[in-house]
Design a protein around this nucleic acid. Structure first.
Length: 538
RNA sequence: GACCGGGUAGCUCAAUGGUAGAGCAUCGGCCUUUUAAGCCGCUGGUUGUGGGUUCGAGUCCCACCCCGGUCACCA
């Protein structure tokens, strides 16, 4: 007995969805059974990108072709000589994003990662089998077509399938290469819901070409950065390395790590919060200039400038210092803006960011500029902290100073600004200025109120480093200490490496995702990450 | 984690507490220069989930889920 009662409607998906999907399944079956076509086709050689096809279009050849067609029609004499057709013949492939059937002439717009191209399929030209394929094509299918590049009445560059070459078994005018069995977003409004866009990025990327462009720019930024750092200029020549992402002792930053476990060794491991301590080991080892571009993982909140996994460039330059990597940073930013994005002035939201010249401002000067009291006035500082709703009880002066600084100064740092001369107490792992021991050799780069880079003259005295580790480890109170104890351990092997001897060096970290946000004018970090972290759907 | 906003057809969106709608898409028909093609016709729903109030809930109340924004967290 069948359990199918005739009056029983299927559960989810809804009937309409099932019908729409059924239509596509039916076409899949027709392709196989009636048309003997593989709906998940084969390797196809000789394809060019759609923008290359557009570039291959010749207005002169199109004009001459149209004139010849007219002449042949009017004279009634000899038909146009096919050998006189100078139009370029190309083969392309792409996803169908428009499909307009005009009876015996079909227009399709296809899209690839380079852009869109219109394809015209005429029944008279390609004959019944291929025309039938074009007619049954659905929005979302991946198709290939070969033909001459011409125009339509309205002047749009169009590939006329089957024209300009001998159509045959091995040279079809039109094929469906991949049948899409999913329901596509609307061709007019496209896909706009942010949740669906992030979850179904494979649809977002073709439905919203500007997303594809952003991701392509991201790739170019990364390549240009690697090329820049590794080229043979005397001030560069860095070696790209990869250091462990799974670490027994997560270090190099203060952040809560993700925890995991290795079964065979039966040990707990942590996803790294920074590569710093390993890159410094490489300075000890004798690699004088190293960098790594890869993921860090921090078990923190998510907002427009934070994703739990993010890409960081960390770089170490032996025999350099804070100012060597500051120059490098400025030159790199300017290089990326001009070579990848076409200019040193780029928009970000409402503002134009000028990468031609970076400001260098002292931390305490900025504080005084944006507050109506001197940074040393503790009573005024506490009052200000209270008015901002900050924690002011049992807080060290400099810690409170930094909290107020972040609330009052950061938002004003729109144009690229290196902040220098941080109070040393805020940077326990940084070398101090030789002549001003209360000032740390550190800079942070701010652009559009965002922290883009952080750099130090690296501490290479193993005894000072060890003392600072221990001071930091016990300097916390209450809940912070309990929490910190779960992940802050002293990395003895790193201290041993420093005892072997690390050359004096400048170190730099650049948040690549935020850099890409700036250079591509995206306001959310999720819009520069292909697959941002999303909570699984229940 | 807190607060605010949102979740309705495949897509984009409507709907005083009173019969859940439109456009596009799909399907059928006509159409050889369209551009969101056009015209005619058919079709499409567990209104995020679960409770509650009510004669009656997409709408009001409660809880939960997911997304966005703001904040918190974030040497």
């Amino acid at each position: 007995m069948s359990d199918k009662a005739p009056d029983k409607k299927p559960a989810a998906p809804t009937k309409s969805t099932a019908q729409l999907l059924g239509d596509r399944r039916l076409k899949l079956k027709r392709l196989r059974d009636e048309l003997k076509q593989d709906p998940y086709g084969q390797r196809t050689d000789g394809l060019i990108r759609l923008n290359a096809a557009r570039d291959a279009f010749s207005q002169a050849a199109d004009t001459a072709h149209k004139a010849a067609q007219e002449a042949a029609k009017e004279e009634g004499a000899a038909p146009a000589d096919p050998n006189a057709d100078e139009r370029a013949v190309v083969a392309v492939a792409g996803r169908v994003v428009q499909h307009r059937v005009m009876g015996n002439l079909i227009f399709l717009s296809v899209r690839d990662d380079s852009g869109d191209l219109q394809i015209a399929v005429s029944k008279k030209t390609v004959g019944q089998p291929d025309f039938g394929l074009a007619k049954m094509t659905d929005y979302g299918d991946i198709v290939t077509a070969k033909g001459a590049l011409g125009t339509t009445k309205t002047g749009e560059v169009t590939l006329w399938a089957g024209e300009g070459f001998e159509v045959g078994e091995d040279a079809p005018a039109y094929r469906i290469l991949t049948k899409s069995l999913a329901l596509p977003p609307g061709k007019h409004h496209g896909l706009t819901d942010p949740e669906t866009r992030y979850r179904k990025r494979y649809v977002d990327l073709y439905a919203n070409p500007e997303v594809m462009q952003t991701m392509q720019t991201r790739s170019r930024i990364l390549k240009a950065t690697r090329d820049y750092l590794t080229d043979d200029q005397p001030e560069r020549g860095f070696l790209e390395v990869e250091t462990p992402m799974m670490q027994a002792i997560p270090g190099g930053a203060a952040a809560r790590p993700f925890e995991t476990h290795h079964n065979a060794l039966d040990i707990d491991l942590f996803l790294r919060i920074a590569p710093e301590l390993y890159l410094k080991r490489l300075l000890v080892a004798g690699m004088p200039r190293v960098f790594e571009i890869n993921r860090n993982f921090r078990n923190e909140g998510i907002d427009r400038s934070h994703n739990p996994e993010f890409t960081m460039l960390e770089l170490y330059q032996a025999y350099g210092d804070l100012y060597s990597v500051m120059d490098l940073t400025e030159n790199l930013f300017r290089h990326l803006a001009s070579t990848v994005c076409g200019g040193t002035t780029l928009p970000f939201g409402e503002v134009q960011v000028d990468y031609a010249a970076f400001e260098r401002r002292k931390y305490l000067d900025l504080f005084n500029q944006h507050n109506d009291f001197d940074h040393s006035d503790h009573a005024a500082l506490v009052a200000k902290g209270d008015s901002l709703g900050l924690k002011t009880q049992d807080v060290d002066h400099d810690v409170l100073l930094n909290s107020v600084w972040e609330e009052t100064v950061e938002q004003h740092l729109i144009q690229p600004t290196f902040v220098i001369d941080y109070p040393a107490s805020l940077c326990p792992l940084t070398k101090r200025k030789p002549d001003e021991p209360e000032i740390a050799e550190r800079f942070e780069l701010f652009v559009c109120g965002m922290e883009l880079a952080n750099a130090y003259t690296e501490l290479n005295d193993p005894d000072v480093q060890e003392a600072n580790f221990k001071a930091q480890d016990t300097g916390l109170t209450g809940e912070d200490a309990v929490e910190a104890a779960t992940f802050r351990n002293i990395d003895e092997d790193f201290l041993e490496a420093l005892r072997v001897g690390m050359p004096p060096a400048g170190g730099l970290g650049i948040g690549i995702d935020r850099l890409v946000m700036l250079l591509t004018n995206q306001q959310s970090i999720r819009d520069v990450i292909l697959f941002p972290l999303m909570r699984p759907q229940g």
